[in-house]
């Protein structure tokens, strides 16, 4: 048991660690395959781990609801949110929009026109077809010398009807199931822009919730960052010492230098363009500050980080650092 808990994970870690380090130096397909396959394994593990995450969230909030702790209503709302989003995701097959005409596997068929005897266009039908994936994989496995054309099914169809004078009178959109049954049939509002675009996707319930509920919440949090930066800047730029004064001046130059109007004042009002033959517009000063002293400092940090990463990786690969297995020796 000790072997399984201690030595075996260390052995796996050593073998994978050395192999992944060496694959960087091996340009054969084997090396590339090793790198891509291990990242595939990680994705698979992540998917299983998401159940762990879900279990953790559910357990924390369930206990809160169960014990009727203050704010338990919000925890109940978490479950409502999970059910709603999960349900919408399942119904929409995880797609944010309905099928589009030009997606990965969909093919837009050439329009089929109906005209009267004099050649005036009366009706145009645009359809999108999708390859049935099961058949494709079967054909690849069988490797037939001349595979038959892949079987497809019609996904969406847009029928546009025209008046003899060329005006659009009606646009009807139909969505089909794989068996050919009509899932949805509706008339488009032809006064709307883009109504005649062939089968543009529309948000599914999942996509709608993402766009109209989650996105605004995320944007709100992100927008608050502006206020936090202002408050942090106020604290940072108090010139209490020479160093903080230097920081204040530099920050002001960079801030002001990024405003187009300042550049206008600098070059047009003050007329400063060159200094001893060197171009000296406001963006040049800002560029120098960002590219020279700032980059030098960042690279200094970068060197230390790189060495730290290598040292930590080596410690883990060689089993010197084993706390991540759950404690010391």
């Amino acid at each position: 048991m000790i072997f399984l808990k201690r030595q075996f994970p260390l052995l796996i870690c050593f073998a994978i660690g050395v192999a992944m380090a060496l694959q960087y130096y091996v340009p054969t397909t084997l090396g590339q395959k090793l790198a891509s396959q291990t990242s595939d394994w990680y994705i698979i593990i992540t998917i299983f781990a998401s159940f762990l995450g879900f279990g953790s969230v559910a357990s924390v909030h369930w206990r809160k609801v169960n014990a009727r702790r203050p704010g338990w209503g919000y925890s109940a709302l978490v479950f409502v949110g999970i059910v709603l989003m999960l349900g919408a995701g399942i119904i929409s097959e995880g797609k944010p929009t309905t099928e589009r005409a030009h997606d990965e596997q969909g093919t837009e068929l050439p329009p089929v026109d109906e005209r009267d005897a004099s050649g005036v266009l009366l009706k145009r039908t645009i359809a999108t077809e999708r390859i049935i994936p099961d058949l494709v994989s079967k054909e690849i496995v069988e490797e037939t010398a001349a595979p038959p054309p892949p079987k497809t099914f019609k996904v969406l169809e847009l029928v546009i009807e025209y008046a003899p004078d060329g005006r659009v009178t009606k646009a009807t959109e139909t969505k089909y199931s794989r068996s050919g049954a009509v899932l949805l049939k509706r008339d488009r509002d032809i006064s709307k822009e883009g109504a005649l675009l062939p089968l543009e996707g529309e948000p599914t319930s999942f996509g709608w919730m993402y766009q109209n509920m989650l996105n605004p919440l995320q944007s709100t949090m992100f927008a608050m960052l502006g206020f936090y930066i202002a408050s942090a800047a106020f604290r940072s730029f108090r010139a209490k010492s020479f160093h903080s004064g230097l920081l204040l001046v530099t920050a002001l130059v960079v801030l002001i230098g990024n405003v187009p109007f300042t550049n206008h004042i600098w070059s047009e009002w003050f007329g400063i363009h060159h200094l001893r033959g060197v171009r000296l517009e406001m963006p040049d000063i800002v560029g120098w500050l960002m590219n020279t002293p700032n980059t030098a400092a960042r690279r200094g940090v970068g060197f230390g980080v790189a060495l730290g990463i290598i040292a930590t990786s080596l410690k883990i690969i060689f089993g010197i650092e084993r706390a991540y297995l759950g404690g010391g020796d």
Binding site: A49, S50, F51, L52, G53, S56, A323, Y324, G326, G327
Partner: peptide, 13 residues
Amino acid sequence: AIVMAVCQEITRE
């Protein structure tokens, strides 16, 4: 979630 699982073990130990 994976970091959580690792950290749970580390904290326990």
